[in-house]
Design a protein around this nucleic acid. Structure first.
Lengths: 324, 324
DNA sequence: CATTCTGTTTGAATCGTTTCGACACCGGTT
DNA sequence: AACCGGTGTCGAAACGATTCAAACAGAATG
C-alpha cells in the first residue's frame, strides 16, 4: 500500500509537502499540489487510519454500543445517529457485546453512544474519567464527559396504565424488565404511582427480562391463574410479542380475555394481530439527538440533558372491559 | 491516558521491557512482570489501538458492511458472524452506507464481510488488489484476496415456482429485485428456466427494488389488472410485506384472490397473517461460514467458495387454486 | 548591492507501540 | 583465568502520518 513517503519520492518533494498538499493547505503551490494529487491518485494512495489517529488523536469515528444486533428496535435509532453524525463529519460503527468493550477502551473512537446494559455505571464513569466522551441512552450518569438522552419513561408508563384504567380494567398485570434496568425502574415507579392514585385497581407484578422468553413465561403464569378478563402492561413490546406467541397456543383470546399493551412500538407490533397497543416515540430522533449531544461534548460546547417524548398508540389488543 | 512510557518510568525499566511484560513474553522475569502489570493496573493502562495497529499492521477487527441497519434481516446474520469471529480472536463492527467505505480503505480492519450493493465490483476488486481481505455475500468475485459465500438462489427460486405450479397456479407474477442485483439475477434465471419447462404457465415480470415500496407498487399494478386468482412470487420478503400492506387496503384477499410467496423468511413473515410462504435458510450459518472463510484468507489458509442451502416454507399465503 | 519581505519547501520531532540486535551478567565448563 | 551459553534487560529503529520551526528562494525595496 502506497504511503505518503512513496508519493514524496515519486514527486521529488519532502513528505511534509505531500502532507500539506493532501490536506489542502494553502502553503503549497497550486502546481505542486496538483502534481502531488495526481501522483497520489496514480498510486491509489489512501491515508492510513492508524497513523493519522495516532498523531492527531482523533479518528472521526463514533461507536454505537448495543446489547445485540437484533433488528426491529435499533434500526431507526441507528439511522437517526448515522444521519446527524455524517452531517457533522463523523462516521458511525456499531459494536455489540462485552468483548467489544475493548474497542471503546483502546481509543478507537472519538466518542461513543451507549445503549447497552453490558456496561456497568462504574465502567462508564471510569472511561469518562480517562477522557472518553460518552452519551448514554439507558441511564443517568453525572460526569463532564457524559451526557444522557432519555425517554420519558414515566410519562409513557402512566399513559399506558391510565389507558387501561380508563377502559375499565381493574386487574392489571405488569411484566417488568430485568433487575437493574433503569428503564424498567422508571416505568415501574410510574406504574406504582398510578396504582396508588387508583385505589380500586389491583396490580400484580411479574418479573420479566425485556425479551420474548420473559413474555412467554409471564403469559404462562397469567393463563394458569386465569379467572376472567385481565389487562397486561408489558414493559416492552418484545415481551408482549412473547406473550402473544404463548397465548396463541391457548384458547385465551387477546383483546377479549387478555388485553395487552406494550412499550416501544417496534415494527412487529404494527403487524401482529390484534395490533398491539403500545407507547410510541421517535427512535430516529432519539438517535439523532444523542449524536448531536455527543458531538457537542467532543467539540467542547455546552450541553444539557434531553428527554424524548412519548405518545400512546391505541389498538385492538386493548378493548374496554365488558360490563357484566 | 497512561502510556507504556509512563509505566516504564514508574517501574524504572525500559519501555521494551514493559512491552514484553504486557504481552506475556517469557523473556521477562516473573517478578518484574508482576511489578509491571501491577503498575499498569494502577495507572489504568490500556494499549492504544492506533499505535498497535500502526506497528503490527493488524487490528483484530473485522468490519461488516451492510446497506442499512434495518433490522429483521441482518440480526441473525450478524450474530452468526460475531460468534465465530469472537471465537477466532477477532472483534466485529458494523458499518453502513457509502460514507463508510473509507473505513475499509483506510485499513482499519483486518478484513471485511460485504453484503452491500453500495460497493461496486470494481471497487471491491481494487481493494483486494491493494491487499484487503474480503468475503462477499452478494456477488461472485474472482481474486485471491476475495472469497464468496452465496445463497443457493437458483434452488430457492425453483422451489418457490414449483410450489406455486404444483398447487395449480398458472398465472404467476414475479416481482424482481433492483437492476444489477446478483441475487435478483440468479433468482430470475431460475424462474425463467422453470417457466420454460412448464409451457402452460404465464409469467409476468414486474420490476421491483427489494424494498417495501417496490412491493406496494407491484401490488397496485396487480390489483389494477386483477381478473381472477393469481399467484405472486416476490423475490424477497420485504416486497411481499409491502404488497400485504397495500392489498390489505383493497378487498382482494390474500391466500385466495392473490397467493404470495416470498424469499428470505425474515422474522416478520412469521407474524403477518396469513403467514407468508417463503424460502428459508440459516442466516446465522451464512454469517458464521462467511466469517470462517475470511479468517482463513487472513491466515493464509486455503479456502473454497461455499454455498448456503435453502428450503421451502409452505404457509397460508399460498393455497391450491380452486378448480372452477 | 545589500536588505527585507513574502511565500514555498524542508528537516526533524512526535504520537504509542513492537521488535531486532546488542549487551551485561551469571553459573558452569574447560 | 579464559570461555561459553543462556537469561533478562535495554536502546534504537520502525510503522505512517502531522506540524512546528527553520531554511530557502526570488521579488521588491531602499
Amino acid at each position: 500500500m502506497a504511503s505518503i513517503k512513496d508519493i514524496a519520492k515519486k514527486a521529488g518533494v519532502s513528505i511534509s509537502t505531500v502532507s500539506y498538499a493532501l490536506n489542502g493547505s494553502s502553503k503549497v503551490t497550486d502546481e505542486t499540489c496538483a502534481r502531488i494529487l495526481a501522483i497520489a491518485k496514480e498510486l491509489n494512495y489512501v491515508p492510513n487510519a492508524a497513523a493519522r489517529s495516532l498523531k492527531k488523536k482523533e479518528s472521526k469515528i463514533i461507536g454505537a454500543f448495543l446489547p445485540d444486533f437484533s433488528g426491529g428496535f435499533y434500526g431507526d435509532l441507528l439511522q437517526g445517529m448515522k444521519g446527524t453524525l455524517i452531517q457533522k463529519g463523523y462516521d458511525l460503527v456499531v459494536c455489540s457485546g462485552p468483548q467489544s468493550h475493548r474497542l471503546l477502551a483502546e481509543k478507537l473512537f472519538d466518542g461513543a453512544l451507549i445503549l447497552d446494559h453490558t456496561f456497568s455505571d462504574e465502567q462508564l464513569l471510569n472511561f469518562a474519567e480517562l477522557g472518553h466522551r460518552l452519551v448514554v441512552l439507558d441511564r443517568e450518569l453525572k460526569h463532564p464527559n457524559i451526557n444522557h438522552v432519555l425517554l420519558d419513561n414515566k410519562a409513557g408508563a402512566s399513559l399506558a396504565m391510565e389507558y387501561l384504567i380508563d377502559l375499565g380494567h381493574r386487574k392489571i398485570y405488569v411484566v417488568t424488565g430485568p433487575e437493574g434496568s433503569y428503564d424498567s425502574k422508571q416505568r415501574m415507579a410510574a406504574v406504582r404511582q398510578t396504582v396508588e392514585r387508583n385505589s380500586d385497581v389491583e396490580c400484580i407484578e411479574i418479573p420479566g427480562d425485556f425479551n420474548r422468553t420473559g413474555g412467554e413465561r409471564a403469559g404462562k403464569q397469567i393463563a394458569a391463574e386465569f379467572a376472567g378478563p385481565v389487562a397486561v402492561f408489558c414493559l416492552n413490546d418484545e415481551m408482549a410479542i412473547g406473550m402473544y406467541d404463548y397465548l396463541s397456543e391457548t384458547d385465551l383470546e387477546m383483546g377479549k380475555d387478555i388485553h395487552i399493551i406494550g412499550f416501544d412500538n417496534i415494527e412487529l407490533s404494527e403487524y401482529i394481530r390484534p395490533r398491539l397497543a403500545t407507547i410510541d416515540y421517535s427512535k430516529k430522533k432519539w438517535g439523532s439527538l444523542a449524536s448531536e449531544q455527543l458531538i457537542k461534548i467532543i467539540e467542547g460546547k455546552p450541553v444539557e440533558n434531553e428527554r424524548i417524548y412519548v405518545t400512546l398508540v391505541k389498538a385492538e389488543s386493548v378493548k374496554p372491559v365488558q360490563s357484566a
